[in-house]
Write a protein that binds this DNA or RNA. Structure first.
Lengths: 203, 203
DNA sequence: AAATATAATGAACGGTGTTCAGTAAATGCA
DNA sequence: TGCATTTACTGAACACCGTTCATTATATTT
């Protein structure tokens, strides 16, 4: 009975067509300025059709977020390759910051934007779990070797993620203009901050 | 010629009436869900009137942000009173985190929300300068006494602010659920993170 | 009291997310 | 094969949104 399977496949293709268009437009124009009608136009379907595949605009955002977490995880896997766990931690930190600088709109979608329609914040626990686990694993190695000052691994992860997220998100919201000289290269500055921080938490 | 002065006064009262209503509704319902029409209704004026006092919805947001920065500065002044600059820095950090936890909607308005109408990010340099200066001043004292590991004060401010902002904003976006045990008190956890961080950057 | 200047209105414009009765295409059954 | 039924899609309609502007009401000046 291959018909049901084909239907399922076609349905998945349709869903992907929608999210691909949505991702493209979210990145180019931002989430708020992208309307369901725009997305529908770009894939040459009527607005109503999108609602046959996604419950609402938020669900579309969640799907795009899921894909974005995947991209970040890929960047981690490709770039955090050092054998030394401390070095790898530094690579992770810089990869994270670079990801935020290179994909500001994507970073916004992933961590900053609040989907304004249904203020239901339940989804996030499942989304991005793998990516976070990658950091935790590296941290575990560091702490097994007593390379960091931390005692509690959860608190360590919290602190490190907060630091890099703070750097990226303050920059994205132009809050660094107050303190960083305009002529300085932001990337360089943020990398220095990461290095200095890692220096500080070394055992 | 007291008439012009009275008119100016009345105008200011009107502006304040609008921002007061706007602040209340932004906090209760969020920025996105608060419409100009709602605000107009709540002060019993027509929507068009608001545009006689504020250029657009963003300008309303900027004004509310300005007031919010004032509130944070007040909290700083009231709570960061220790003579010891290092202790004062810890007080500042905890005050900041507490402010973010106690006024999540306000914090959102100040640091996270991107005003979506005119993507003009120029205003922020003036807004909040005083509040930031308060932190820098404390930092300066710390560094004059060689109490911190930092060499560059700008980089120090960047790092510290990033840490506390990261803690608060990840929590606000429910991204801590992945790593912090649900039963634990968030405030306690974030305070511990601040303490541990300050420990790490001590000279 | 009349003319002028200021303040406020609210309908209208072009958008938004979302729903749903109606239509067209694909499938199951005889 | 032909017909009934399920499935896919449409696009007008609903209730909103931010913003503008001709019109009206109020206050000041002459």
């Amino acid at each position: 009975m291959g018909i049901a399977e084909r239907k399922e496949r076609v349905r998945e293709e349709m869903k992907q067509m929608i999210t691909t268009a949505a991702m493209k437009m979210f990145l180019e124009e931002g989430y708020a300025k992208t309307s369901i009608r725009n997305i529908a136009d770009s894939i040459e379907y009527s607005p109503g059709t999108i609602y046959l595949y996604y419950k609402d605009k938020d669900e579309l955002l969640y799907e795009v977020q899921r894909q974005a977490y995947g991209k970040l995880l890929e960047a981690f896997k490709a770039g955090a390759v050092s054998k030394d766990p401390l070095e790898r931690l530094e690579q992770l930190g810089k990869l994270y910051v670079a990801f935020g600088l290179d994909n500001p709109e994507l970073y916004d979608l992933m961590f900053i934007i609040r989907a304004p329609m249904n203020v239901d914040e339940k989804l996030h626990q499942s989304n991005g779990g793998d990516t976070f686990a990658f950091l935790v694993q590296c941290l575990e190695e560091c702490m097994k070797g007593n390379l960091l000052i931390f005692k509690d691994i959860q608190l360590a992860a919290l602190q490190i993620w907060s630091m890099v997220h703070g750097l990226v998100s303050l920059n994205l919201r132009c809050r660094l203009k107050i303190m960083v000289p305009v002529d300085e290269d932001i990337r360089f500055t943020l990398f220095r901050a990461v290095e200095e921080y890692l220096e500080a938490i070394r055992a």
